[in-house]
Amino acid sequence: MTDPTTQLDIPRAFPDHTQLPESDGTFVKNFQEHPQSILLTDSLGSVLQRLHPDGQYCIGQDSGIYWRETDPPEKGAEAPDWFYVGDVPPQLDGRYRRSYVLWRELITPTIVLEFASGDGSQERDQTPFKGKFWVYERVMRVPYYGIYEIITGKLEVYHLVDVTYQKLTPNERGHYPILPMQVELGLWQGNYQNQEMLWLRWWDLSGNLLLIGNEQVVLERQRAEQEHQRAEQERQRAEAAERELAHLRSLLQHQDPA
């Protein structure tokens, strides 16, 4: 018989990512959100390989971050359009992640980004326990928070200093350094997935644009073509020099010895 004096009053275990909803059933708000997320993720490959050679990181796109238990459960989550968190496994127990559960992980994302379809009021909402801004700042304590208004092309980036967000001023290139990631965040005008607009892009700390896969292919093709042209020019110069040398030899052979 168990001695009741030795039993521990263990509280109900907090749910994990397999026990919480992975969607609230709402539509994506615009056609730019998913291409924008893919563009950000695709161009970070080399950076993440350098930062995490062990592969211990994850990136979320419209994925829930659970920060408190509520009823219904999804009311206790925020789903940033894009976020990155380092030093966590990409999978849990060999299964793909359904959501990111702060009370299980204990590591907060380094940066969250919201792509505002409207005027950004929802993304700047500081209402306690309800507003996105308040939750990211006061509960999750995410070091960097970016708000991009798609319609106006306006980008704001906030950095957590002590206990509050401070709005950052862009550098001379118009970018915002995200030092833990060794990159800069900024805006790039161009065509991606058949959409011409201002896109969020990454640069390195020297101001070089981080390329996505097809851009890297084009760059390598251009480099190969330039190398081919250089080699062809060298070959033509060598042939011209050989012809000139042969001509000089011919002249010397036909000179009158007297």
Rank of each mutant, 00 (worst) to 15 (best):
Q56D: 12
V101R: 04
D71N: 13
S250E: 15
W103M: 09
E196F: 09
C58H: 09
W203H: 08
Q189D: 12
K132F: 00
Q226H: 10
K154P: 00
L211P: 13
Q56W: 06
E196R: 10
L179A: 14
W203E: 11
G118N: 05
E215Y: 08
Q253W: 12
D119Q: 12
G213E: 14
A241G: 01
R201D: 08
L251E: 15
V217M: 10
D24C: 06
N194I: 01
I59S: 04
D256F: 04
Q49P: 00
I150V: 14
R235V: 01
G131Y: 08
G94L: 09
K154R: 15
Y148L: 12
W202L: 11
A258F: 10
K167D: 02
L168F: 01
R104Q: 15
Q193D: 14
Y57W: 15
G25S: 05
T70R: 03
P21C: 09
E149Y: 00
Q91R: 01
L187P: 07
H175A: 10
K75Y: 14
Q255V: 08
Q56A: 08
E74I: 09
K154L: 02
L92S: 06
E196Y: 12
G86Y: 08
P89C: 07
E105L: 02
Q166E: 15
D3N: 15
P53V: 11
G186L: 05
S121F: 01
W134G: 03
Q49T: 13
P143G: 05
A240N: 10
A238V: 02
L113A: 06
T6A: 06
G213M: 10
Y165C: 05
M181D: 03
Y165K: 06
H17I: 01
P89V: 07
V139Y: 11
Y100Q: 09
Q61C: 03
R50F: 11
G86A: 12
T2D: 09
C58A: 05
D93N: 14
W188F: 15
L251Q: 13
L205S: 05
W202R: 05
V88Y: 04
P180G: 06
L187V: 10
Y136R: 07
E239V: 07
L185K: 07
V135C: 03
V142I: 15
S23V: 01
I65F: 05
F14H: 11
E33G: 00
G120V: 02
T127H: 03
L252Y: 05
F129H: 13
K132T: 01
